[in-house]
Design a protein around this nucleic acid. Structure first.
Length: 861
RNA sequence: GCGGACGUGGCGGAACUGGUAUACGCAACAGACUUAAAAUCUGUCGCCCGUAAGGGAUUGAGGGUUCAAAUCCCUCCGUCCGCACCA
């Protein structure tokens, strides 16, 4: 008997798979059903650590399992290769972003191959290659043609560290998603994709995504933030204001037109057009607006900021009563980016309006009577009633329910031409301009006389120039005179290229389509092939993309469908989504406060020591493996020591896939032991597979039953994404096999069957070890090409079952009965059980509940 | 503040539609092999009382529904996540 040596076995099996081409998806439709499994493709940042491998291991289990189940599986891999780290590397290490990126891809491809993933490498793509981004530019122009792209001046989020703008989704807690720097507002001319055109579709489509986590659907729904209400216009009281501000009145968005009779003021955002106009002449208003702009945008600052405002000395008329004048204020709690940037204050029904009214002594008229309240006594003190109720103090709305009053008020507004029902969204258009070099160039030329002119399609791709420098801040494309200056394609006059590049989230919004047919040079993908493979049946990735990437991709497939590039009526790219948890590891800090990698730390007599200095180490929190905290375990190091299978098995053990799993040396040792134990139980087998199982001993039959139960359980666990349960079931099965001693030849045949089934069950998880076992057992071909085993139903049925017997809900004994035994039989057996009889002493049996084949509960007193 | 998820031994966790709670793994302890250690193997192992047989309490806390609750309902506590003055 020998030990299993992954260093020798793993490369050997990988070349067998490559030679046989088992991992390639069919290039043309087959009679097998298709299955598209995809892990979110990585950014080539350098090296893969054990933490990253979990995502790929999960996808690979699904891919290998589905293949064994007879599906034609598409399981591709590529590189999300544009992005800022390449430019930072260029700046810090004087290496060209492209060279840096390609080298990282080289390294990481090698690592993924060492993991033994069943990937179709023929379909590999890198988004930084012109043969990829040229299609992206064509798509951009198609969107432009369709009116889905807009260039406009807008207040945008500027990340002062990354020196670029960010989309709304990319600002987390007021900070840039990558840099973590507080973003500031800037007014700039920028490119937008009109994702808001699809707000309803993106929201309503969530209902069909029944194989997505509810959590992600909810997050997207909240992000889109649809709310129904009305636009209401309050006409200016002084007709002169119409000319002064160039409009009839002030339009607000409200979800509660039923509370219009409780209005006591209007409030505008500090940067509303009217506020800005007035600020030009009135220093006090100007100061107020500047103060608001300067106040913090972080969560806490907003929370603590008291309501404040300034009376603009403008009057408007109530839409339902031309004799009713309302004052117009500017207030710090009104957002210019939501609705119309103006509200009407109805203090009895809104907490913010109430606080504002109390501070500035504005009237508070309750108009909604909460259920059960008395109109004569109900009053509002310091808490607004925001719930539903009966409308009062409201003339023609009196007596109506909130819901009916909303309808009625909208009708009346429409009649008076002062408003209409309206839907508002929290979702903003997707800002895709980035002031960076290492991204997909936006294929547009700016001409003084023709404006923004699309680059003609036959001139695509607009390639990034290679000769750029990063020694000065800013976008090198802006400084590249040779690249920048071109003639206008329309009029031939000298013009300038757009120097902004596209947000890298654009690249990842359609790569899954390119994977379906990465070959055409004249189009982004072959529509028939894309249609054959789409949607992705199982997508696997991190929860951090719950909104960003997943929302953008859903928008893209809709837009591509509407542009006629793909026939995908649902618009949904990912039918099934799984968001996996991270791999975590302890963090270590040296005495000098420096992060230390696990390899720089050593355990000496229970004390952790920095190897280099011999000084003690502080153990910090257990956190997600990340380069910045240095708490990573390098994948190559791991594979060198334990092999790829151990890495795969480890990251799938112990924790449910959606939760984090902690990396511990103890856990790794356990996996290594298990790999060897499993090998030894196969290697120690002395019979031959496929023998006659007639005359099997009772123990042999029990083993067979365990084997077939395990087949059933592991299959169900894989289907349900419960890989940790599958691991536990395989452990059980190996324990049973280790205890088993064959009594005769039939037993050996049964043992051989069990070992073969075991090999097949582990093959999606530990494919190399499985091949070694398959070979050792003398099976034909390779296990990677074998069909998934089916459990024999006859062996899943037990002739006898053990029932627990409870007395008053407490377990007092157990009885063994033939399967399907009736109530009388079960009751009698239960009452005869000595333990049960003992606990029934002195009690009268009142009732016996029998659930056949499950439990007996005796109620006594 | 709003919305959501979760809470089970020393630790990670299992328990499918309410039906034997603590599977499996880690750690720990004892033993075998060994000059010794590592590795490996065997056994014990949630808590309390008891030498034991056996008994008792137990799934964050409290209450409820039920013959029966980790699982369903209510209240509270705690942890994590998302959104955050969204009119």
């Amino acid at each position: 008997m020998s030990r299993y040596n992954p260093r020798e076995a793993e490369p050997r099996w990988q070349s067998v798979w490559a030679d046989q081409g088992v991992d390639h998806a069919a290039r043309e439709a087959t009679d097998r059903p298709k299955y598209y499994v995809l892990e979110m493709f990585p950014y080539p940042s350098g090296k893969i650590h054990v933490g990253h491998s979990r995502n790929y291991a999960m996808g690979d289990v699904v891919a290998r399992y589905k293949r064994a189940k007879g599906f034609d599986v598409l399981h591709p891999m590529g590189w999300d290769a544009f992005g800022l780290p390449a430019e930072n590397a260029a700046r810090e290490r004087n290496v060209h972003p492209r060279d840096w990126t390609l080298k990282n891809i080289e390294v990481m491809r090698g690592q993924l191959k060492r993991l033994g993933l069943a990937l179709d490498w023929d379909r590999e793509i890198a988004t930084c290659e012109p043969d990829y981004y040229k299609h992206q530019q064509a798509i951009f122009l198609k969107f432009l043609e369709k009116g889905l792209v807009e260039r406009r001046k807008a207040k945008v989020n500027w990340d002062p560290v990354d020196n670029t703008v960010l989309a709304n989704e990319q600002v987390i807690d007021g900070k840039g998603w990558r840099s973590g720097a507080p973003v500031v507002q800037r007014e700039l001319d920028q490119w937008f994709l009109k994702i808001t055109d699809y707000a309803d579709s993106l929201l309503d489509g969530l209902d069909q995504l029944d194989r997505w986590p509810d959590k992600v659907r909810l997050m997207q729904a909240n992000w889109i933030g649809r709310s129904r209400g009305a636009h209401v216009t309050f006409p200016f009281a002084d007709p002169a204001d119409r000319d002064r501000f160039g409009c009839e009145g002030i339009t607000v968005f409200t979800t509660r037109p039923d509370t219009l009779f409780g209005a006591s003021f209007l409030a505008l955002a500090s940067d509303h057009a009217i506020t800005t106009a007035l600020a030009a002449d009135d220093p006090l208003i100007g100061k107020f607006a500047r103060d608001c702009a300067a106040s913090g945008t972080t969560a806490e600052e907003i929370e603590k900021a008291p309501k404040k405002g300034i009376d603009l000395d403008v009057k408007v008329l109530h839409p339902f009563d031309p004799d009713w004048e309302l004052p117009v204020w500017s207030a710090n709690f009104v957002l210019s980016s939501y609705g119309t940037g103006a509200i009407f204050g109805s203090p009895a029904g809104d907490q913010r309006d109430l606080e504002f009214s109390r501070k500035y002594d504005l009237p508070v008229t309750p108009v909604v009577l909460p259920p059960g309240a008395d109109a004569a006594t109900h009053s509002i003190d310091d808490e607004a009633w925001t719930g539903p109720g009966t409308i009062y103090n409201s003339r023609f709305l009196d007596g109506l329910s909130t819901e009916a009053a909303i309808e009625r008020a909208i009708q009346e507004l429409e009649k008076r031409k002062l408003g209409h029902g309206a839907t508002n969204y929290r979702l903003r258009d997707w800002l895709v301009s980035r002031q960076r070099y290492w991204g997909c160039p936006i294929p547009v030329i700016h001409c003084d006389s023709c404006g923004a002119v699309p680059v003609p399609e036959d001139q695509l791709p607009v390639e990034l120039p290679r000769d750029v420098t990063f020694d000065t801040p800013g976008n090198p494309l802006d400084r590249h005179e040779g690249w920048r200056h071109v003639d206008c394609p329309k009029c031939g006059q000298p013009a300038k290229r757009e120097t902004d590049t596209l947000d890298t989230f654009v690249c990842s919004s359609w790569y899954f389509l390119r994977f379906a047919s990465p070959w055409p040079e004249d189009k982004p993908f072959d529509p028939a092939e894309a249609q054959r493979w789409m949607p992705v049946d199982q997508y696997v990735g991190g929860i951090e993309h719950a909104i960003l990437h997943l929302l953008y991709a859903r928008f893209f497939t809709r837009a591509l469908h509407d542009c006629g590039l793909i026939d995908l009526p649902s618009g949904e790219p990912f039918a099934g989504l799984f968001t996996q948890g991270m791999v975590t590891h302890e963090t270590y800090k040296s005495e000098t406060g420096k992060w230390l990698a696990p390899t720089e730390v050593e355990d000496r007599d229970g004390q952790l020591i920095e190897i280099e200095t011999g000084r003690p180490v502080t153990v910090g929190a257990i956190e997600k493996m990340s380069k910045s905290k240095k708490n990573v375990v390098d994948l190559d190091d791991f594979i060198d020591t334990y092999g790829a299978d151990a890495a795969r098995w480890f990251v799938l053990s112990d924790s449910p896939p959606e939760r984090d799993v902690e990396y511990t040396d103890g856990g790794v040792d356990g996996v290594w032991r298990f790999v060897q134990r499993l090998w030894s139980v196969v290697d120690g087998f002395e019979g031959t597979s496929g023998g006659d199982m007639n005359g099997v001993s009772p123990e042999g039959l029990e083993l067979r039953k365990t084997a077939h139960r395990t087949v059933r359980d592991v299959t169900e666990a894989i289907e349900g994404f419960r890989f940790n349960s599958a691991v536990a079931k395989v452990h059980d099965f190996v324990n049973a096999l280790r205890k088993f001693l064959p009594a005769n030849e039939a037993d050996k045949a049964a043992q051989g069957e069990s070992l073969r089934l075991l090999t097949q069950l582990i093959s999606p998880f530990m494919p190399h070890l499985a091949e070694a076992c398959w070979e050792r057992l003398g099976q034909d071909g390779i296990v990677a090409a074998a069909a998934w085993p089916e459990a024999d139903p006859a062996l899943l049925i037990d002739n006898t079952v053990i029932l627990a017997v409870q007395v008053n809900g407490k377990r007092r004994g157990e009885i063994e009965l033939p399967k399907g035994a009736d109530r009388d039989m079960a009751e009698k057996a239960a009452l005869d059980d000595p333990g049960v009889a003992r606990s029934l002493e002195g009690l009268n049996v009142r009732k016996v509940i029998v659930v056949p084949d499950r439990i007996v509960n005796i109620v006594a007193g």
